[in-house]
C-alpha cells in the first residue's frame, strides 16, 4: 500500500494517468517515483510532485492513498481495472475515466468528467461532483457502460449523459439535464433536480425524490406509483409521478418524480 503526499502547491494542470494501483503494483518506491507525469507541457516524474511512502497493507488489494489538495491533478485512476484508490481531499478532472474495475473513494470534491465512459468498478464521492459525471467524451454517444457511481453531496449538469448501463446515485441535488440521451441504466437523485431531466432519453430510469421545476413537454404522464425499485435491495418510497419519454426521440425512458415535493405538477393527473 502506497501513500502519496504532495510536495508543493500545483498551478498548471497535471496529467497523472500513472496513479493506478495496477501500475504501482510490483514496483519499488523508487520505480514509482520515476513514473511519467505531465505538468502543463513539461514531462516530469511522479517523485518530483509527491512524497511517496510505503505503509502496511490493510487489504489484499493494491491500494494507493493520496492526501491534500489534488484539484489540479487529472486522470487519476484512468482505465483502472482493480485495486483501490483513496483520496483524502479534492481531486481534479477525469477521475476514473474509462475505469473497468476496482474502487475509488474520495473524501472531498471531484471536478468534472469523473467516471466518464466508465465500464465497471465503483466510484464513491463523499463531497460534491461537478459536471458530466459518467458522461462520454465530446461527440461520442457511448456514455457509462457499467459500474456504480455514488455521490453523497451534489452533482452538476448532465449527470449520466448517454448512459448505457450501470447506476448513479446522488444523495444531494443535481443540475440540469440529468440522464440526457440515456439509453439504459438507473440514475437516482435523493435531492432536487434543476430541470430538463431525461431530455432526449431513449430508455432507462431516472428517479428524483426532491423538487423539480417542470417536466419537459416531450414527456407524457403514465401513472402514479407508490414506490420504485432503485436496485436489487433498494426501494425508493413514493408516491411518484411516472412520466415516459422522450417522445421526440421515440423514447420509452421512465422518469419518476416525487409527487409530494411537486404538487405543482398535479395538473398532469387530469391526463391519467
Amino acid at each position: 500500500m502506497v501513500n502519496l503526499y504532495p510536495k508543493r502547491e500545483f498551478k498548471v494542470p497535471i496529467f497523472a494517468e500513472c496513479i493506478n494501483p495496477e501500475i504501482f503494483e510490483d514496483k519499488t518506491l523508487s520505480e514509482i517515483a520515476e513514473l511519467e507525469v505531465w505538468e502543463g507541457n513539461k514531462r516530469k516524474k511522479l517523485g518530483e510532485f509527491f512524497k511517496i511512502e510505503e505503509v502496511k497493507a490493510e487489504t489484499e488489494e493494491p491500494t494507493i492513498t493520496l492526501y491534500g489538495d489534488l484539484s489540479r491533478i487529472r486522470r487519476i485512476g484512468t482505465k483502472m481495472r482493480r485495486g483501490i484508490i483513496k483520496i483524502q481531499g479534492d481531486v481534479g478532472m477525469h477521475l476514473g475515466e474509462e475505469m473497468e474495475g476496482g474502487k475509488i473513494v474520495v473524501r472531498g470534491n471531484v471536478d468534472s468528467w469523473a467516471g466518464s465512459m466508465m465500464k465497471g468498478g465503483i466510484i464513491e464521492i463523499h463531497g460534491n461532483a461537478s459536471h458530466y459525471l459518467g458522461a462520454p467524451y465530446r461527440g461520442s454517444t457511448v456514455g457509462m457502460r457499467g459500474g456504480r457511481i455514488i455521490v453523497h453531496g451534489n452533482a452538476g449538469n448532465e449527470v449520466g449523459a448517454y448512459m448505457r448501463k450501470g447506476i448513479i446515485k446522488v444523495y444531494g441535488n443535481v443540475g440540469q439535464f440529468v440522464g440526457l440521451r440515456m439509453r439504459k441504466g438507473t440514475i437516482f437523485v435523493a435531492g432536487d433536480a434543476e430541470g430538463r431531466m431525461g431530455a432526449c432519453m431513449k430508455g432507462g430510469k431516472i428517479i428524483v425524490c426532491g423538487h423539480v421545476d417542470s417536466i419537459l413537454p416531450s414527456f407524457t404522464i403514465e401513472n402514479v406509483k407508490g414506490k420504485v425499485k432503485v436496485e436489487a435491495d433498494e426501494i425508493a418510497q413514493g408516491p411518484f409521478y411516472l412520466f415516459l419519454g422522450d417522445l421526440t426521440e421515440n423514447g420509452m425512458g421512465k422518469l419518476y418524480v416525487s409527487k409530494e415535493k411537486n404538487s405543482h405538477l398535479g395538473f398532469y393527473e387530469k391526463y391519467l
Binding site: 430538463r196 417542470s214 419537459l216 413537454p217 416531450s218 422522450d246 421526440t248
Partner: peptide, 10 residues
C-alpha cells in the same frame, strides 16, 4: 428556449 424547441419537435 429548450422547452419551446422540444415542444415544436413534438
Amino acid at each position: 428556449d429548450y422547452e419551446l424547441l422540444q415542444a415544436l419537435r413534438m
